[in-house]
Each structure stands twice: as structure tokens, then as C-alpha cells.
């Protein structure tokens, strides 16, 4: 069974935020809600690196564990989705999530947050595929069309990868080997110089 994952290669991420706007574009996400974001560590200093973060579709998802109404489910592809008809907007998933993935359309007095919204791995929600209800609540369903999440597909430097965990491992392994070799040759050249 496929297990869909995201991976962001910090060696390549340049914080161009294409993933963020691609997501907004694909799902018509309103101002203030960001299913994906880029975090830059050590901004402006040696060692600065950026990573694109969204729902990582955890195997043992903390959001699903703490949800008081059990609105989360995992698809056959290992994608963690939720049912907005069931969600009560309590915010617990946001507290538990390691990646800050759950988003809420509002944040106002009396704990009114609206229904939680998060990255769906572009796989829609529990509604019938490609219905306008599904689109309105969860955005577009690319996975059922055989496509991958748009954020990863549009990544400027192919830093953000999405897909089956095994395939991602292969891609990443190749990159690591390349870089390892590069790093090694580089080091040797430095020594020779």
C-alpha cells in the first residue's frame, strides 16, 4: 500500500514561497489561512536554511488522536484527512500537531475558529470526488486524478517532494550520494590546493 509523504530538502529550499501560493491558488484559500508555510532558521546568518512545512500526514497522527469528535481518517494512501462536517473547531489538533498544520479561518472571541482547514495532500475530503461541495470545503482533489500536490509539483527548485515514501527515499538517496561525492571531491580539491 502506498504511503504518501512530503519531504523538503533544506539544501534546495530557497524560501520562494511558491508552495504557499500554489496551495492558495489551487484551493482558493482565503487570506489568513495557510495550509503550507516556509520557515527559515537562522535568518540572515551563516547556516540559514529554510523548510517548507505543512501537514506531514503522520502514520500515528496526533491530531487524530486528540480530536474530541474523531473527525480524522487516513486514506488507503496514508493521507490524513478530516471531515469538516464533523469538526467542531476546538483547536486541539493545532495544539497537538508537531508541524502547525491545522489552520482556522478565524480566531475570535468565545473560541470561534470555524472549521479546521489543513493540507489535504490535494486529496479532497470525504465528499464524492470532484463535487463542488468537496471543492468548497477541501479544495481540489488532485490525487484522484493521478496527480500529486501542486505545492510540490510547482516547487521552484524541486526541494519539496511529495509522493510515495519509497519513491521519495530513492530520489533523496540519489541526492545524498551526489552531494556526498561532491562534498568529498570538494574537500579533496581544497586539500590539494
Amino acid at each position: 500500500m502506498a504511503s504518501m509523504k512530503f519531504y523538503c530538502d533544506a539544501e534546495r529550499c530557497i524560501e520562494c514561497n511558491a508552495c504557499v501560493t500554489a496551495c492558495k491558488n489551487e484551493h482558493d484559500i482565503p487570506w489568513g489561512v495557510n495550509r503550507r508555510r516556509v520557515v527559515t532558521i537562522k535568518d540572515g546568518e551563516q547556516g540559514e536554511r529554510s523548510l517548507s512545512v505543512a501537514c506531514m500526514h503522520c502514520a500515528d497522527a496526533p491530531c487524530a488522536a486528540v480530536c474530541p469528535v474523531d473527525c480524522f481518517y487516513t486514506t488507503g494512501d496514508g493521507i490524513v484527512l478530516h471531515d469538516k462536517d464533523i469538526c467542531i473547531g476546538c483547536g486541539y489538533c493545532f495544539y497537538a500537531c508537531p508541524f502547525g498544520a491545522p489552520q482556522f479561518p478565524e480566531s475570535s472571541a468565545f473560541s470561534s475558529r470555524g472549521k479546521m482547514d489543513k493540507c489535504t495532500f490535494c486529496a479532497g475530503g470525504p465528499e464524492e470526488d470532484h463535487t463542488s461541495e468537496e471543492y468548497k470545503k477541501y479544495g481540489r482533489n488532485r490525487v484522484s486524478e493521478g496527480k500529486l500536490p501542486l505545492c510540490a509539483e510547482m516547487c521552484a527548485t524541486k526541494a519539496l517532494l511529495a509522493g510515495d515514501a519509497d519513491v521519495l527515499s530513492d530520489i533523496y538517496r540519489k541526492r545524498v550520494i551526489n552531494r556526498g561525492a561532491s562534498a568529498f571531491e570538494w574537500g579533496v580539491n581544497q586539500l590539494k590546493g
Binding site: 481518517y73 494512501d77 484522484s144
Partner: peptide
Amino acid sequence: IKSSSSVDKA
């Protein structure tokens, strides 16, 4: 639970 890999249907 819904499988999302129904490409043909899509």
C-alpha cells in the same frame, strides 16, 4: 475511509 487512487473515475 476513502481510497484516493481512483484515477479512472477521476
